[in-house]
């Protein structure tokens, strides 16, 4: 019975839709913090930008690290991330109501290794990570996702 409840709760958490207006496209949703010298690559609207310390990330950005590159990111909901070398992460959607401290996000890890220490978004159960084969719903914890090419 408990397992059935857990399953239903998990399905609900993964399928739930946001109920409030969130940050607008173009808003700063997070910043690159500690980063290896020379920065990393951020792909925005098809163009390549140099993501150094303090770089303001937006919804839709793609974070790319090469061999030897690494970046720490803190989002406005206080979620912290580490993007390890040889990784590619797409910030597919990120909406956060900074007044009510709730929202939703979906990020896709295409390759590499990404560490996540979830922040306030995880409380809503609408923080998701996609890998090539699975979807992860984050309920509040620290974890590492690995995707080999």
């Amino acid at each position: 019975m408990r397992n059935l409840f857990l399953l239903l709760a998990a399905i609900f958490a993964l399928a739930a839709q946001p109920a409030v207006a969130q940050t607008d496209a173009g808003d700063t949703i997070g910043r690159i913090k500690n980063v290896t010298q020379g920065g990393i690559e951020v792909v925005r609207d098809g163009g390549k930008l140099q993501g150094t310390s303090g770089f303001r990330l937006r919804e839709g950005d793609i974070v790319v690290t090469r061999a030897g590159q690494r970046a720490g990111i803190t989002f406005v909901d206080n979620t912290r991330m580490v993007v390890a070398p040889k990784s590619r992460m797409i910030i597919s959607s990120y909406r956060f109501d900074r007044k009510r401290r709730t929202g939703e996000s979906q990020m896709t890890i295409e390759r590499g290794k990404v560490g996540v220490d979830s922040g306030e978004l995880a409380r809503s159960g609408r923080m998701k990570f996609k890998t090539p084969t699975s979807t992860l719903g984050v309920r509040g914890t620290t974890f590492v996702i690995e995707v080999d090419e």
Binding site: S134, R139, I145, E146, V147
Partner: peptide
């Protein structure tokens, strides 16, 4: 490889797991 590893336990009150996985075949 494609895997997820917890570095900390689920936060208290999150009894359905710190990370919920939906596999490509629909299993959880």
């Amino acid at each position: 490889k494609e895997r997820v590893t917890l570095l900390a336990p689920a936060q208290s009150g999150k009894d359905i797991g710190g990370v919920v996985i939906e596999y490509d075949d629909g299993r959880m």
